[in-house]
């Protein structure tokens, strides 16, 4: 049993590294999505979804790195706070845009001028 715990303790920094790295990659994917996707709602989707998962993975990595301490407890609280507020904020933004009458863009995306792609009235 203690061997098993020992192995877990050795593995901990590696798991933390994987979580941090994948969190960073997911945030990067979200950023590229915000730049590349065609309309407001898809961009919001990229930002909201990846931000929640990415930051939570980063926080998970940090918790694993700091071990069972007060710091990791605070990080877990930050994670809980983000888990609640981040989707709510995304919802509020999407709701406001819908209320303001912004229609999502439907149909297939044709190749277009770059000025047109970013020119929605958000």
């Amino acid at each position: 049993m203690s061997d098993f715990l020992h192995i877990l303790d050795i593995l901990r920094p590696y798991v933390a590294g994987i979580a941090l790295l994948s969190g960073g990659v997911i945030v990067l994917i979200g950023a590229s999505g915000v730049l590349r996707l065609p309309d407001f709602y898809t961009r919001l989707h990229a930002a909201g979804v990846t931000d929640t998962l990415g930051t939570l993975l980063v926080l998970l990595g940090l918790i694993l790195l700091s071990g069972f301490t007060l710091l990791s407890g605070k990080l877990a609280l930050v994670g809980l706070f983000l888990l609640l507020t981040s989707p709510a904020a995304t919802h509020a933004v999407a709701n406001a845009a819908h209320k303001a009458g912004l229609k999502p863009r439907l149909g297939t995306v044709k190749s277009q001028a770059p000025g047109e792609a970013s020119g929605d009235p958000s």
Binding site: T85, A88, N95
Partner: peptide, 16 residues
């Protein structure tokens, strides 16, 4: 009905 998500979340959050 319109702001139900925000109401629930803010009700949770404001005391905290």
């Amino acid at each position: 009905a319109h702001h139900v998500v925000l109401r629930v979340i803010s009700k949770l959050m404001i005391p905290v």
